[in-house]
Amino acid sequence: KNAAKIVNEALNQGITLFVSDNKLKYKTNRDSIPSELLEEWKQHKQELIDFLTQLES
């Protein structure tokens, strides 16, 4: 999976991924984040940080 797909899947579940101080963060109104999503974010962390940083610049 690529970073764009992961970010879109998160958005579809009401979760916004973003970068703050070079760290991957998220915002959501959900009570909890599915563990498989958290695991996927960890596996692709640097790719996600790079992707989101490019989007914001």
Rank of each mutant, 00 (worst) to 15 (best):
N22V: 03
F51E: 02
A10S: 04
D31P: 14
L55S: 12
H44I: 04
E39I: 09
A3E: 03
V7P: 00
T28M: 04
K42M: 14
T28I: 03
I49E: 03
K42I: 14
A3V: 11
R30G: 08
E9W: 07
S35T: 11
K25Y: 15
I6M: 10
I33P: 05
N2G: 11
D31I: 12
N2Q: 10
G14E: 04
E47V: 08
K25T: 07
N29P: 06
V19R: 02
K42F: 12
Q13M: 15
N12K: 15
V7I: 13
K42H: 11
K25F: 15
T16D: 05
K23Y: 07
E39K: 09
R30S: 06
N12L: 15
E56W: 08
Q13I: 08
I6D: 01
N22A: 07
P34Y: 03
E39N: 09
Q46R: 09
R30K: 08
L37T: 05
L38C: 10
D50R: 10
L48D: 00
S35E: 14
F51Y: 15
Q54H: 09
E39D: 09
N29A: 11
L17G: 01
I33R: 02
N12S: 15
V7A: 04
Y26N: 01
F18R: 03
S32C: 11
L11G: 05
E36R: 08
V7C: 05
G14S: 04
N8S: 14
I33S: 02
L11T: 07
L17S: 00
N2L: 13
A4S: 09
G14L: 03
L17A: 00
K1P: 08
E40K: 12
Q13L: 15
E40D: 09
I6S: 01
N2M: 12
D50M: 08
H44W: 13
S35K: 12
F18C: 06
T16R: 09
E56K: 11
S32W: 10
L24H: 00
K23N: 11
T53Y: 07
L11I: 08
W41P: 00
G14W: 04
L48V: 05
E36M: 08
K5A: 15
E40T: 14
F18S: 05
K42D: 12
Q43T: 13
N22F: 07
L37W: 07
A10L: 03
L55P: 09
G14V: 01
E47C: 07
L52Y: 02
K1A: 11
T53N: 11
I6K: 02
S20I: 14
K42Q: 12
L55N: 12
N29E: 13
I15Y: 09
Y26I: 04
E40Y: 10
K27R: 13
W41G: 01
I6R: 03
L37P: 01
K45F: 12
K27S: 09
N2D: 14
I15C: 04
N2A: 11
W41K: 00
I33K: 01
Q54W: 12
K27N: 07
N29M: 11
A4Y: 10
S57N: 13
K25D: 06
K5F: 12
P34W: 02
Q46A: 10
F51K: 01
Q46D: 12
T16A: 06
K5Q: 15
N22I: 03
A4H: 07
L48C: 01
N12H: 11
F51R: 01
D31H: 11
K5Y: 12
F51G: 00
T16P: 01
Q54P: 07
D50L: 13
E39A: 11
N12T: 12
Q46W: 09
Y26M: 04
Q54V: 08
G14D: 05
N29I: 08
N8A: 15
K23P: 00
V19L: 07
Q13Y: 14
T53M: 14
N29H: 11
T28Q: 03
K23Q: 14
F18H: 05
E36Y: 13
A10G: 03
K45S: 13
I49M: 06
Q13E: 07
E36G: 09
I15Q: 01
Q13T: 04
K5W: 14
Q46T: 08
E36W: 09
I33H: 02
I6P: 00
E39W: 09
E47S: 08
A3C: 10
R30P: 02
K45M: 15
T53W: 06
A10E: 00
L48Y: 00
T53C: 08
E9R: 10
I49L: 07
F18Y: 15
L24C: 03
K45T: 14
S35Q: 14
Q54T: 10
N12W: 08
T28L: 03
K42V: 11
S32E: 11
I33V: 12
D21W: 05
Q13N: 10
D50T: 11
Q43W: 08
N8R: 15
N22K: 08
Q43H: 10
Q54E: 11
D31V: 11
T53G: 07
F51C: 02
A10Q: 01
F51M: 03
F18P: 01
V7Y: 15
L37C: 05
E40R: 09
Q54N: 12
E56I: 12
Q13F: 13
V7N: 03
G14Q: 05
D31S: 11
I15E: 01
K1G: 11
E40A: 09
R30I: 06
N22Y: 07
V7T: 03
W41F: 08
N29V: 09
K25Q: 13
T16S: 06
K27F: 10
L38V: 08
L24F: 03
N8P: 01
L17R: 01
E39Q: 11
Q46G: 06
H44N: 10
R30L: 10
L24T: 00
N8Q: 15
F51H: 06
S32L: 07
S32Q: 09
K27H: 10
I15W: 03
V7Q: 02
K5N: 09
L52M: 03
P34H: 04
Q54A: 14
W41R: 00
Y26S: 02
E47K: 06
K45C: 14
E47M: 14
Q13R: 09
A3Y: 05
L38H: 05
K25A: 11
N29L: 12
L37D: 02
K5C: 12
F51N: 01
